[in-house]
Design a binder for these strands. Structure first.
Lengths: 202, 202
RNA sequence: UGACACCAGUUUGU
DNA sequence: ACAAACTGGTGTCA
């Protein structure tokens, strides 16, 4: 199945589609359930949408600092605001964008394994055509050509792209969760952007 | 004589060589002279350097639009900014690059015939190895093999290559002007690039 | 296979 | 206004 998410109405925005969906907000959930860790969690059996965004202060300079934001819902305990550690790869905007998507799907797997989330469809929302195009178009070529870009060099951030690709396949194969990506304008991922920037300034 | 220009110091750039040369700037010229057209022109007796560049918006698409830029000096009246007309051949980057060189040398001949330029050495500066290699290497074979490329097909843009080749020979034979070509990185032909792009967006 | 151009698009920043 | 980080493509030759 296609990894591209297309909203029911072609012109729909996340505001229309996600927030109109009663199941998109974890925090409004009243039902709780004791998870494998002995703590109470909300239980979901629904389609969910997640915002992922990266930020990088001083991008392109040698003092760049990158961070990732993953947003499930207002004040959700599952939201992520994480710095990209200096030892953990290049401090670039692109790297942060990919890594945000990775964190989002890793969290989904964690929640599903924990039993506190039951879902069949995840929509990963990003404003990065770099990430969305990579996972919906380019990756199929890359898998066949040894991850080479048009200029004959190895694809930058290959490790994280492979990781993201693998996560999508694992969710599909092992958990029956189909992940699709939705490319949206910047203004619709502000909550995740906030979380990414907060991580940088902490 | 070789058509390749090699700067005195192998690592020199146009910035080093051209702009350090006091005669490279038409606009600083104080002496004027009435030309054949009854108008006043600057008179030169010097070696000159000219930047030529082509641009092509949407190159490779069916809505491509190409333009040429020729740069003598800041705000020189001799600078050229010209669109490649639709009826005047293929709208491609390569075509524009060659045509820019053609326009430059046609302008030189015009100025020399007008008597407003006296020169023995012209350096035509381009960032196109396609054009420079063609005029400094490949053309000698092409003249002997009926303008065939390696794959046995006729050389693309043959007409303009022949025209350019002829201009160089005419300048040499009829005007005692030796033309040499200098291949430089993109960043050194920005002024001509600007003129080419301006032509497209007009 | 190599090289030089010419573009298209997105994000991140100062 | 500038630049960096990234991808995709064509135009052409050897």
């Amino acid at each position: 199945m296609s990894r591209i998410y297309t909203p029911p109405n072609g012109n729909s925005t996340p505001d229309d589609v996600v927030y109109a969906h009663p199941h998109s907000d974890f925090t409004n959930m009243q039902q709780t359930h004791m998870g494998n860790d002995g703590r109470f969690h909300n239980i979901w059996s629904c389609d969910i949408a997640i915002l992922a965004d990266g930020a990088c202060a001083g991008n392109g300079t040698n003092y760049a600092r990158a961070g990732m934001g993953v947003y499930f819902a207002p004040d959700s305990r599952y939201n992520i605001s994480e710095k990209l550690e200096a030892w953990d790869g290049q401090q670039t905007n692109q790297h942060a964008e990919i890594r945000a998507a990775v964190l989002a799907l890793e969290k989904v797997i964690e929640l599903v394994e924990d039993g506190c989330l039951q879902t069949e469809n995840v929509v990963l929302i990003s404003d990065s055509s770099y990430v969305v195009d990579a996972m919906t178009n380019w990756v199929y070529r890359w898998r066949n050509n040894g991850w080479m870009n048009n200029r004959g060099f190895e694809v930058t951030n290959r490790d994280d792209f492979e990781r993201l690709d693998r996560l999508i396949n694992i969710l599909d194969d092992d958990f029956d969760v189909s992940v699709r990506l939705w490319l949206v304008p910047r203004c619709y991922v502000q909550e995740a952007d906030r979380l990414a920037k907060d991580a940088i300034n902490s």
